[in-house]
Lab assay of single mutants.
Amino acid sequence: HMTFVALYDYVASGETDLSFKKGERLQIVNNTEGDWWLAHSLTTGRTGYISSNYVAPSD
């Protein structure tokens, strides 16, 4: 899985979204569905959809 880092804080707007904080590391589970990616937070252990605009590759 690809690992990304959050560029900004994000508060989930629905049950399927994932809230995260700036600097949080996220593993991308599925990024084939446009701008919203299914991600797993390595910080909180939660999984949900994130906006690809809010993250950048961590490598």
Rank of each mutant, 00 (worst) to 15 (best):
W37Q: 03
A56L: 11
Y49I: 07
Y54A: 15
S41Q: 04
T47Y: 11
Q27S: 08
A56F: 09
G23K: 01
Y54L: 14
A56P: 05
L26M: 08
D9M: 06
T32M: 12
H1S: 13
D17E: 15
E24L: 02
T16F: 15
V11H: 10
S58F: 15
G48W: 04
I28W: 02
V11C: 11
T3G: 05
P57W: 10
G23H: 04
A39K: 00
L26R: 00
G34E: 08
D17Q: 15
S51R: 15
V5C: 07
G23F: 03
N31P: 10
W36I: 12
F20R: 00
L18Q: 01
P57Q: 09
G48N: 00
V29N: 04
V55K: 02
N53E: 14
G45Y: 03
Y10R: 04
T44G: 02
V11M: 10
V5G: 00
T47K: 07
D35M: 08
E24H: 03
E24M: 01
G34M: 07
T3R: 06
N30V: 10
L7I: 08
V55P: 03
L42I: 09
L42M: 08
G34I: 06
L18R: 01
P57N: 07
D9C: 06
W36S: 08
E24S: 01
A12W: 02
L38F: 09
S19V: 04
Y10Q: 03
L18S: 02
I50E: 00
Y8Q: 10
I50C: 02
V55Q: 03
E24G: 00
L42G: 02
P57K: 09
D9F: 05
G14D: 09
D35Q: 10
W36V: 12
D35A: 09
D9R: 00
L38K: 03
F20D: 00
T43G: 05
D17G: 11
N31Q: 13
E33A: 11
N30L: 10
D17P: 02
E24D: 11
G14V: 14
W37E: 00
T3Y: 15
S51T: 06
D59G: 11
I28Q: 14
N53Q: 14
R25P: 06
W36E: 05
G45P: 00
Y49A: 03
D17L: 13
A39C: 03
V55H: 03
D35I: 09
Y49S: 03
Y8E: 10
E33D: 14
G23P: 01
D59C: 14
M2H: 11
G34T: 09
S19Q: 05
G48V: 02
L18W: 03
V5F: 06
S13V: 15
N30I: 10
F20Q: 00
S58Q: 12
Y10I: 06
E33H: 12
G45F: 04
N30T: 10
N53P: 06
I50N: 00
T16L: 13
R46Q: 12
M2G: 10
E33Q: 13
I28P: 11
S13A: 11
G23C: 06
Y10A: 04
L18V: 05
W37H: 03
L42K: 04
H40R: 15
F20A: 01
L7V: 06
D35P: 08
T32Q: 12
A12P: 04
V55F: 10
L18P: 04
F4S: 02
H1A: 11
S41P: 00
S51Y: 14
T32L: 11
L42P: 07
W37C: 05
E15D: 13
K21T: 09
F20V: 07
Y49E: 04
M2D: 10
L18D: 01
E15Y: 08
P57Y: 10
N53R: 13
R46C: 09
V5I: 13
G34A: 11
R46E: 09
E15F: 08
R25K: 13
Y10V: 08
G14P: 02
T16P: 05
D35F: 09
N30D: 13
S41F: 02
Q27I: 15
T44E: 01
W36P: 13
R46M: 12
K21M: 09
L26D: 00
W37V: 07
N53L: 14
T47Q: 08
L38S: 02
T44P: 00
S51N: 15
S41H: 05
H40K: 15
P57R: 09
S19T: 08
L38G: 00
A12D: 02
G14L: 12
D17M: 14
T3E: 13
D35G: 11
L42T: 06
L18Y: 02
T32N: 09
T16N: 14
E15L: 12
V11N: 10
L26N: 00
K21G: 05
F4K: 02
T44H: 02
D59Q: 11
N30Y: 10
Y54H: 11
Q27R: 14
L26F: 15
T16H: 14
V11R: 06
E24V: 01
L38I: 06
L7E: 04
S52I: 10
T44Y: 02
L18G: 01
F20W: 02
S41R: 01
L38Y: 09
S51F: 14
N30R: 08
